[in-house]
Design a protein around this nucleic acid. Structure first.
Length: 414
RNA sequence: GCCCGGAUAGCUCAGGGGUAGAGCGCAGGACUGUGGAUCCUGUCGUCCCGGGUUCGAGUCCCGGUCCGGGCCCCA
């Protein structure tokens, strides 16, 4: 045991967290639900490196993104970055190693990501994402599957959320004759619902005639009938894809709103996009985001359709009230000199329960007191008198009942 | 990068110029064959850092650091 103290107390780096046992048990319980459901749809887990070449993330998002990334040079002078998300790494992995696998591919991941941003509630510099990617299909059924899967996970976790589904193609279509920079800026403002600046910007670039269409689309949030209204406004766009997705989801009893104003900051989305928002999280209320996208060709592969989503695990953990099942906990209490007997009995019981023994050479009283403190279900008391007859005492710490039983009967008593 | 709030014991916090505090926790005892209650004892501090004002500064002033919340941004 060291008894050194140092002048400087070392604290957690900014935007990181420590997870104590109670919280880890809850997080693991949530994680198990997510994994179980994803696996039941045929998704299999993958894991990519914690850091990648910086380029992987700048290819699609531009150099500006570096400000928000943990980027660094390694000792060989390579530009690397801690992954800020997992879609790009998974697609990189797909291009590198999976192009020969039978399509469609169903992958899921659960891993930590890093962003260099000002932390606030629901936003940390190290955070966890659970997500899936369905690679190789351009059918509407792929979008339907991925959306249903995310919906089922959130429902099973009893989250209160609103699921919004849109199509970026529509806004892109409306803005098709603008140059990319202007279109991008408008998409951003739409995503933020910042009408004031949007208005000013459209005036600035002299495209006031777009206002009506854009503002109307932004307000179009609701049931399937929203699509009919949109058709009236944008006559030369093909709504059949989103219509099929929406109708199919509705017949599968997925509750959602059509929201043609979803733009999403990412520019690699190409078709259906969806987001889920939860109550009780403050400003950072988005718990799920996804859609269909094209990335493979950017990483040197064949142009491959893909669709997926990522769940904000930490935000979900914050609002989710899941019942954590704890295994039975037994404390084997021993009188002085019977420690080895206690160990033997503990080892015998470990198949069936969590078993702890005294490692502080404390009195029986203190051992029981400790059993109570750690919320144990049973105490098994090992004493000389019982031991002579091959027996031990088992005490139910909840009901205070206690019985002396033969060693062989002990297992069935729990 | 901007705005607001905070930093005192392991934790939660009080104290706003005059001896460093409470509750909880932790360890032990009262009670050497039985937990939760009670009581007692013990443990615990560069009062974030630097400078200034003052006879005297956790306390007031200035500067800084860090943390949190809200913006910006958000893959």
């Amino acid at each position: 045991m060291l008894h050194l103290t140092f002048d400087v107390k070392i604290e957690r780096p900014r935007g990181t967290r420590d997870f104590l046992p109670d919280e880890m048990e809850k997080r693991r319980a949530i994680e198990r639900v997510m994994r179980r459901i994803a696996e039941s749809y045929g998704y299999r887990e993958v894991l990519t490196p914690t850091f990648e070449h910086l380029e992987l993330f700048t290819i699609k998002s531009g150099e500006g993104i570096v400000e928000e990334i943990y980027a660094f040079k390694d000792k060989g002078g390579r530009d690397l970055a801690l992954r800020p998300e997992l879609t790009a790494p998974v697609m990189r992995m797909f291009v590198n190693e999976c192009t020969g696998m039978p399509k469609p591919l169903r992958f899921y991941y659960f891993a930590n990501c890093f962003r260099y941003e000002r932390p606030q509630r629901g936003r940390y510099r190290e955070f966890w994402q659970f997500g899936v990617e369905l690679i190789g299909s351009n059918s509407y059924l792929a979008d339907v599957e991925v959306i249903s899967l995310s919906y089922e996970i959130m429902k099973t976790l009893k989250l209160k959320f609103d699921l919004h589904i849109g199509h970026v193609g529509l806004l892109r279509h409306v803005l098709r004759d603008l140059d990319e920079k202007k279109a991008e800026r408008i998409m951003r403002l739409i995503d933020k619902k910042d009408v004031e600046n949007l208005d000013r910007f459209l005036d600035e670039i002299g495209r006031t005639e777009l206002k009506d269409v854009i503002y109307t689309l932004m307000e179009l949030v609701g049931g399937l009938d929203v699509l009919d209204e949109a058709k009236e406004i944008v006559r030369d766009f093909d709504f059949s894809y989103i219509e099929r997705v929406a109708q199919t989801l509705e017949s599968l009893d997925v509750e959602f709103k059509v929201d043609l104003g979803i733009a999403r900051g990412l520019d690699y989305y190409t078709g259906i996009v969806f987001e889920a928002y939860a109550e009780g999280l403050g400003a950072q209320n988005q718990i799920c985001g996804g859609g269909s996208y094209r990335l493979a060709h950017l990483f040197g592969g064949e142009d491959t359709p893909a669709t997926g989503f990522a769940l904000g695990f930490d935000r979900i953990a914050e609002i989710c009230e899941i019942d954590v099942e704890r295994p039975k906990k037994v404390v084997v209490v021993s009188f002085k000199g019977l420690e080895i007997e206690a160990w033997r009995i503990a080892n015998m019981l470990r198949d069936k329960a969590v078993v702890v023994t005294d490692v502080m050479e404390r009195s029986v009283k203190r051992q029981l007191s400790y059993a109570n403190d750690i919320d144990a279900d049973y105490a098994v008391i090992v004493g000389e008198r019982e031991l002579k007859e091959g027996k031990v005492t088992i005490k139910n710490l909840r009901t205070m009942e206690q019985r002396t039983v033969k060693m062989e009967e002990l297992l069935s008593e729990l």
